[in-house]
Simulated scan of single mutants.
Amino acid sequence: MLYETPALHDIDEAVLAEIDDMRDRLRLHLRTTRRWEGQLRRNLTARAIAGSNTIEGYAASVPDVEDIMVGEAPIEASDTVTAEIEGYRQAMTYIQRLAEAGEDFAYSKELLNALHFMMQGHHLLKRPGWWRTGPVYVTSAEDPTIAAYTAPDAVLVPGLTAELAEWLNGGDLDAPALVRASMAHLNLVAVHPWADGNGRMSRALHTLVLAREGVVAPEFSGIEEWLGRARNTYRYYDVLAEVGGPVWSPERDTLPWIRFCLRAHHQQAQAVERQVKTTREVWSALDEAVERQGRPDRMLYALYPAAMGNRVRRATYQADAELSEQQAQRDIRELVRAGWLAAKGEAQGRYYTAGPDLPEGITAEARRPQPLREPYQGH
């Protein structure tokens, strides 16, 4: 028996409708391919990867994650953190591919174990891709000697995971996709099938369900970034403890968990919608500024991340703009001389940020903070 999908109330349906409206607008924005879309998708994926790993104590900056994604050595992340990020990146890349798989796709225990091996394969002593053989206790944040949650006995894991796969393929198909994804997340983390990596796997499965349901591309639909913010992480653990109970208790009410996830999706959708809008406006403003200066428009691929407050690496610019190494170097040097980029670091650690002469109106708009609306207020 798994934790069961709850009945929704009118307020939950109203929040779902607002999320759907934001997703519809996002799909409209993405219907026509834009030159900035690739960089935006990479940044959103990096934010998701950084958020999910931060929850587990493997903190890396979004720029470092982007570097790892494109094969560059990160500036700050340790080798240990880099290995964790690379594993999660590999699993997320496969999830993005599975979003486009045809009708032959099916959930299975084997698929979950394969994703777990992609994510945790660098920990061979922890038997990635194999069920745990012993008990699992999630300890209290205040006192590690206290078990805040005890997972089901190891002998039950294969059967419960098979039941979850069966439910994913055919259970509660009339429930909204966000609700099904949230329930998949809850049940996998509650079963805790592996010795390590259960939280990250559960969040990745959440994103995979949304991707397979066609909600929107995985990089635009997940809540890993939102969950990785400190205050939200505390709430995440609290609601899992409230709903999951001190031991495996699938008869408990799961509505608080669904409401937590709907709030996360609503606020993440707000943030993504804002980022898409800002990206479009910043790219357009940079395009006009580059044209006025008589510079080639390929330089937008270097200027855009700098204007958004991120760093630029020569190799990444070279790949994004499809240039030779020499041409990329010349462009970067020209932008530094013009004061539109500023060089930081040395040798292999060299990177570039917004320079003092990059039009201030462009960078200020990209960095202006705005509040997120609470979806369950006002209904």
Rank of each mutant, 00 (worst) to 15 (best):
Q326H: 12
A364T: 15
A315W: 14
E219F: 10
A162I: 02
K344C: 13
F260S: 02
Y237G: 05
L115D: 01
H116W: 15
Q267H: 13
E213D: 12
T145Q: 13
Q275N: 14
T5S: 08
S324V: 04
L286Q: 00
A354H: 01
P246S: 14
G170T: 00
R252T: 08
E213I: 08
S108M: 11
A48P: 12
R200W: 04
G339N: 02
A366C: 08
R89M: 11
G349V: 02
M299P: 01
D153A: 13
A230T: 05
M308F: 04
W130S: 15
Q370C: 11
A73V: 12
P158V: 10
V81R: 08
E273I: 09
Y304N: 00
E281G: 07
V215G: 00
A271H: 12
E225L: 03
R212N: 03
A147F: 07
R231Y: 15
A315K: 07
D10W: 13
M119D: 06
V239K: 10
Y376A: 04
A271G: 14
N187D: 05
G339W: 01
A151Y: 04
L125G: 14
S324M: 03
P128V: 02
R41W: 10
A154N: 06
F117Q: 12
E251P: 10
G355Q: 04
G170W: 02
A338K: 02
Y94G: 12
N169I: 10
G129M: 07
R313K: 06
H185Y: 12
D24I: 14
Y237C: 06
A73F: 09
R41P: 11
A175C: 06
A165E: 05
L358E: 00
E288A: 07
E142Q: 11
L111Y: 14
V216I: 12
